[in-house]
Nucleic acid binder design. Structure first.
Length: 821
RNA sequence: GCCGGGAUGGUGGAAUUGGUAGACACACGGGACUUAAAAUCCCGAGGACUUAACUGUCCGUGCGGGUUCGACUCCCGCUCCCGGUACCA
């Protein structure tokens, strides 16, 4: 046994063995408890990147550990195969996106297999396949029937020369990425899904997600953004119409000095007809980005419309302005402005010479309203009948007054907006609707699904090629049979990724989206693992879609749960030189190169060891070599088994056997703990390295010494299996383990090996470490004090001092508080 | 802007969640083996000052305060970096 560790040989061998034995296949029986471990499926961009490798190594470690614990594990993989990058590549290479996508899937599937990831490949799915998206189309027609899907106007980024809608990503510094023309906002009729109908449930069920990181739950809560306030109707001078707004601060109502409406608001459009200057301003506003970050950080500008609103309580006239920071898509597209109590309104008022009226003052102290807005709650002033109330009471009182006088009411408002699911793109799932001149928008009947996307079309960078595909475009109305046109928009790709976790349980079902019995067996996902960047959008949409599926009767809450993911692990990104790896920065590391040079196990080990899962991982080539060296060291530990001889035990051996068994079993405890609590694999691997170091330093003499060494080697091999499975199997085989490490059961802690008679207690004086004492495990404070006094280096700190207080932390430390005598 | 997260040696990170700061590893330095190198093995190491001494003292977890016998950990106020911000996935 002197050959060196060769990853290439053993990895191919074990991958073949695992494939033949089918250990990765999720079984459709209930002999063992089931466990569903899911990693976020990749977008097939061409090559696996290190972020994928990290994600999938984490998932594989969990899946393998659970199998070793005796669970029937579902660990599937697939492809989030629709999306913009395929169209971009198609334009660049003059090949249809389907070709590029399927080639990438083949390439990346090979890479995943080379990593030795234990997926059940029988359940592989690709979202661009009609067998997949037909069910998404089926669901959408159900939503139309229920009134949960609807059409409405929405603003998009529009490039006139390219005659196309641009994704935010395609807008670079306000201009089109391809032709450098300034992008404008344009209104288009779009499809929406009423996620706001589920806002309350999505918010309430966050409480169930105890296995999610608190920060993700918090981000979702903020995103849904429930706020209670009031809807207020302002009158309009010389008009029967009203100007309706929502505010979270009805207590400041008496401080309104102007109103602000969006550039797209009917009032603004009306005013602009007789005011060329205002029309120019509206034109300018239409050019600014729709991104929230851009809207919030740009220079705040406005112009008066010439209209005046009538204050609902005072009856005062206040001017109506157009402001670039008010968006038509949010709320009513109009806001009331209270410069005295809102900093943005304050700055706007200062800039344009609008008046500032203070109506709230601090309950105690003063506030200089000339220098800044007072935005806290306080006590009302200058508010007539409401003077003297504090903000909370005033909110209530003013809202009641508005309701009684038919000028408003209490209202709950969510920040969450309905989900815009239509995209003016080619490489996506067709929206299953036919537009008929007589019947309107007609959902495609079930027996005509799927509406298949023609896969041979070539995008050019202009309008979607679907708009020119006559065979796709023209059809008959399913309702009246007259010639009609298909909907030419496709679905947002978040639609596909919102339900794939459930499709994996019945991946080949041609009768239904999912099977309730399969959902009962596997769902919800026990452990979901993926990038933090998905903390809100994907995870919120998936939660929503799961509830839609439940409410469509595909499964009951009992069978599939109200929530799709029980536990969530959000991994950090992979960085190089401090920034995210990306092609444009040229700082990528190719996983293939690492696998070829060091083997998959080294790549796996490094990504798991270099950082805790939830934090960013800084790539380090030298660290990869270090991981590889560790495997070499463990390999060499095998030699010692051959070299040691069976001899009679001596007394000296008993102590060393006890020490090594302590090391073995405390390692089992630590590593098991890592899997059961938080997946700190970096710490688990460090513990395995320590065990390896202990075994390396250990000289197995005598029969019991050799046995202890063998016990340690087997434990090490078994615990390494979730991380470096090929390597662990090979070591296991050479140790003569009956089953390969992958399928053998997880080692148990022998508590008797952890028992210790004497422990080391740290002694502190005034909280500073001054020495250590060795003492009986269960020694009390008096014994510990006596031992401390007997220690010269500790005792000298107590000379001339009076002991004021003694704190004993059992098993840990003794802190002596003193003062000069 | 808003929301969320982070900052610990030369580097990645650890610290049983208020109890020995720096486990484990990388990089580095010294040594062994070798004709030599690689590989491997052994030893060293937060910083400053100090000692004949790996002797001893002090400082030290982004910055400034606070609570505590005791703070990387809790509280208050900052700085910088990263993620999300609804058509990238």
């Amino acid at each position: 046994m002197s050959e060196r560790y060769s990853a290439q040989e053993i990895e191919a061998k074990w991958q073949q063995k695992w494939f033949e034995s089918g250990i990765d296949t999720a079984r459709e029986d209930d002999e063992q408890e089931s466990y569903y471990c899911l990693v976020m499926f990749p977008y097939p961009s061409g090559n696996l990147h290190m972020g994928h490798v990290r994600n999938y190594c984490l998932g594989d470690a969990v899946a393998r550990y659970k199998r070793m614990q005796g669970f029937n594990v579902l660990h599937p993989i697939g492809w989030d195969a629709f999306g913009l990058p395929a169209e971009n590549a198609a334009i660049k290479h003059h090949r249809p996106p389907a070709e590029w996508t399927y080639a990438n899937i083949d390439q990346m599937r090979g890479q995943l297999k080379r990593l030795g990831l234990s997926y059940d490949w029988n359940r592989e799915i690709a979202t661009c396949h009609p067998d997949y998206y037909r069910w998404e189309q089926w669901m959408f027609t159900r939503l139309i029937e229920k009134g949960l899907a609807y059409q409405s106007n929405a603003e998009v980024n529009w490039c006139d020369p390219c005659h196309t809608v641009l994704a935010n990503e395609q807008v670079v510094d306000g201009v089109c990425w391809r032709c450098d023309t300034p992008v404008i906002r344009k209104k288009l009729k779009q499809w929406f899904i009423r996620i706001t109908d589920y806002a309350e449930e999505l918010l309430a069920d966050l409480d169930q997600l105890t296995g999610w990181p608190e920060k993700v739950v918090g981000m979702q809560r903020n995103w849904i953004g429930k706020s209670t306030g009031a809807e207020v109707s302002f009158g309009l001078e010389n008009s029967d119409e009203t100007l309706d707004i929502f505010t979270t601060r009805p207590d400041t109502l008496m401080g309104v000095t102007y109103m602000a409406v969006a550039a797209g608001h009917p009032l603004a459009v009306k005013a602009a007809k007789e005011n060329p200057e205002l029309a120019g301003f509206l034109e300018e506003c239409s050019k600014i980005s729709t991104k929230e970050a851009d809207v919030e950080t740009m220079e705040k500008k406005g112009m008066p419309t010439g209209f005046h609103a009538i204050h609902p309580i005072s009856g005062d006239k206040v001017p109506v302005w157009v402001a670039n920071f008010v968006l038509m898509g949010y709320g009513t597209g109009a806001v009331m402005s209270v410069p005295a109590h809102d900093q943005r309104d304050f700055e706007f008022a200062r800039k344009y010479g609008l008046s500032v009226k203070q109506v709230i003052k601090p309950v105690t102290g003063d506030w200089d309203i000339e220098s800044a807005a007072f935005t806290d709650a306080g006590m009302l002033m200058n508010s007539g009948q409401f003077d003297g109330l504090v903000s909370a009471e005033a909110k209530q009182a003013i809202t009641v007054w508005l309701a009684e006088n038919n000028k408003g009411r209490e209202r709950v408002q969510y920040r969450l907006r309905d989900w815009l699911v239509s995209r003016q793109r080619y490489w996506g799932a067709p929206i299953p609707v036919v537009h008929c001149v007589d019947c309107g928008a007609v959902p495609v009947p079930d027996d005509q699904l799927p509406v298949e996307l023609p896969t041979h079309l070539q995008p050019t960078g202009g309008a979607s090629p679907l708009t020119e595909c006559e065979t796709f475009k023209h059809t008959d109305c399913p309702q009246c049979g007259k010639p009609a046109e298909r909907e030419l928009d496709t679905f947002d790709t978040f639609m596909e990724s919102s339900w794939y976790m459930n499709r994996y349980v019945s991946p080949r079902n041609s009768q239904a989206m999912v099977d309730a019995a399969d959902m009962d067996r596997w769902a919800p996902v026990d452990q979901y693992i993926g990038g933090v960047e998905h903390a809100v959008l994907h995870l919120l949409y998936a939660r929503f879609y799961h509830k839609l599926m439940r409410d469509a009767g595909l499964f009951t809450a009992e069978q599939g749960g109200d929530e799709p993911f029980k536990n969530l692990l959000t991994q950090g990104m992979v960085l190089k030189d401090g920034t995210k790896m990306s092609k444009s920065k040229g700082n990528t590391v190719d996983p293939n190169a690492i696998i070829e040079r060091f083997g998959a196990d080294t790549a796996r080990l490094f990504t798991l060891f270099a950082a805790p899962p939830e934090k960013d991982l800084e790539w380090n080539d030298a660290g990869v070599e270090g991981a590889h060296r560790f495997l070499g060291r463990v390999w060499r530990l095998l030699q010692k088994l051959d070299e040691s001889h069976d001899e009679e035990d001596s007394n000296d051996d008993a102590a060393s056997v006890k020490a090594i068994r302590f090391a073995i079993h405390s390692t089992i405890k630590k590593v098991t703990h890592a899997f059961e609590h938080g997946f700190a694999f970096n710490v688990a691997i460090a513990a395995l390295m320590e065990l390896s170091n202990s075994l390396h330093a250990y000289k197995p003499t005598g029969i019991s010494g050799k046995a202890a060494y063998g016990e340690g080697m087997k434990a090490l091999a078994t615990m390494l299996a979730p991380f470096v499975p090929h390597f662990a199997c090979e070591i296991g085989e050479r140790l003569g383990m009956e089953e390969t490490a992958v399928v053998s059961s997880w080692p148990q802690v022998d508590e008797s090996a952890l028992a210790q008679d004497e422990i080391t207690l740290v002694v502190q004086i005034q909280g500073k470490k001054r020495g250590e004492i060795s003492i009986a495990k269960d020694a009390g404070q008096d014994e510990a004090m006596a031992a401390a006094m007997a220690n010269a280096s500790i005792h000298k700190w107590l000379d001339g001092m009076q002991v004021v207080k003694v704190i004993l932390v059992p098993g840990r430390l003794l802190n002596i508080v003193v003062k000069p005598a």
